[in-house]
Structure formats: structure tokens, C-alpha cells
């Protein structure tokens, strides 16, 4: 039996309530993809619920952040010869039914990174006002830096071709892998493409975006975007 060329990487931190639903959906709606859960130092049963479903789990002994969890997934994918890695949030916001649409341009070689976007086509998703302003600002930042319109820079539903994963396993933001990452990848010559998808609300559990993180986010991402723009790609 030949193995799938696609690995879905699910970074998960204390998501034992929402993870089972996502893993069941992935199996039902995207059986062609292999799945890896990266348990980012959870103290609940996140790893256990994944193992009960026969999904391999790599566990970080301490919480390292979503960027580090994805890097672990990329390294796993590169070492095992996967051609495409898909990033899917464990909270159930990303609908596996759109996995095929996200993968199509990557597998066809039309882009190196496909970004599942809420804003390419009219969708049911409505962001709060402050978030919409932030998204417009970072969309403008990306446009200025790389000359391409990316409407949904904060989407964490993305597919990466193997050469991108080879870079990202070494160089990836530890937190908020959004606009600066896209600028850095475009500056390295990788082709980005937005694919329309629907996103849902969090299924269960709680978000770890606190007030402090919401205030730190614009500072960090603006500075990191500026640096990604002026730095020579490593």
C-alpha cells in the first residue's frame, strides 16, 4: 500500500474536547491524508484522545508555542518524505471538507503555499470590528512588502509544498505565524495563493488569546513584518 503524499499537521494545546471531533472529521472527509497531532505540552488528555483514534502523536514536554509545534510537524513531514503538509487548527475552526480545495493548487504545482481564506469569496464568517481593522492593516503590510494582495493573513489553514517545509523546519516564527511568515516566504521566491474556504467558530475549549496577547500581537507582527521585508532571506 503506498503512503499518502499529504500530512495534516494538527498543533494542539489543551484541546481534548475539540480534537476528537476534528480527527473524526478528517478521517471521514479527507481519508487520503495522513494525520499527525503535535501535543504542545498539554496537561489534559489531548495526546490520549488522539492516540485512542490511532493518530500518531509527537508530544512536546513543555509548551513551546504554535510555531514550534508546526516546526516539529514540518520536520516530521520532511524526514518521512511527505510532499505536502497541511496546517489545521485543533479547535475545529477549519473544516476538513475544504482540504481538497486547499490541496488542489499545491498538488498541481500552481503555488507553493495555499492559504485557506475567508475573504476571497463571500463567506458566512464575520470578524469583530477590531479584528477586521487588524486584518486589513496586515493585508496592506503584505501588499506593500511583496506586491501581492493576501486578504486573510491570519488564516491558520494552509498547505505547504515540501521545499517550503524544508525552510520552515529551521526558520519559523515561534508565535503568530502570520504576515511576517508570508512576507518571508514570498521574499524567498515561494508562490502564495489564496483559496476560498468557510471557517467555523471554536467547537469547544477556550481560546488562549488573552488581552495581553491581543495588545502584543500588532507590535510583534508589525516589527517582524518590517524585519522580514528588509532582512536578506537566510
Amino acid at each position: 500500500m503506498s503512503r499518502s503524499p499529504v500530512l495534516a499537521v494538527v498543533p494542539a494545546y489543551e484541546e481534548e474536547l475539540s480534537l476528537p471531533g476534528l480527527l473524526d472529521e478528517l478521517r471521514a472527509r479527507a481519508p487520503e491524508a495522513d494525520v499527525l497531532v503535535v501535543d504542545d505540552g498539554s496537561r489534559d488528555g489531548t495526546g490520549r484522545v488522539a492516540r485512542e483514534r490511532g493518530v500518531p502523536v509527537v508530544r512536546h514536554p513543555v509548551n513551546l508555542g504554535v510555531g514550534a509545534a508546526l516546526q516539529t510537524g514540518f520536520r516530521y513531514a520532511v524526514e518521512r518524505g511527505y510532499e505536502v503538509g497541511v496546517q489545521i487548527d485543533a479547535d475545529g475552526q477549519h473544516d476538513p471538507a475544504f482540504l481538497g480545495a486547499l490541496l488542489e493548487p499545491v498538488l498541481a504545482g500552481r503555488c507553493d503555499v495555499a492559504i485557506g481564506s475567508r475573504y476571497v469569496a463571500r463567506t458566512l464568517y464575520h470578524a469583530p470590528f477590531a479584528r477586521r481593522i487588524g486584518m486589513m492593516m496586515f493585508s496592506l503590510v503584505v501588499r506593500i512588502a511583496v506586491g501581492q494582495r493576501i486578504a486573510d493573513t491570519t488564516s491558520g489553514f494552509r498547505a505547504y509544498r515540501r521545499p517550503v517545509m524544508e525552510v520552515c523546519q529551521h526558520d519559523f516564527p515561534r508565535d503568530f505565524p502570520d504576515a511576517p511568515l508570508l512576507i518571508g516566504l514570498a521574499r524567498r521566491g515561494f508562490r502564495l495563493l489564496e483559496v476560498p474556504v468557510e471557517m467555523r467558530g471554536r467547537r469547544a475549549g477556550r481560546s488562549f488569546y488573552t488581552l495581553g496577547k491581543s495588545l502584543y500581537y500588532p507590535y510583534k507582527n508589525l516589527l517582524a513584518s518590517l524585519m522580514a521585508w528588509i532582512q536578506r532571506p537566510a
Binding site: R174, D175, Y216, Y219, K220, L223, A224, M227, I230, Q231
Partner: peptide
């Protein structure tokens, strides 16, 4: 810029 100090 030289990655000697993180944004944080």
C-alpha cells in the same frame, strides 16, 4: 534585524 534579539 540581525536576529540577535527577539521581538518579544
Amino acid at each position: 534585524r540581525r536576529r540577535r534579539l527577539s521581538e518579544e
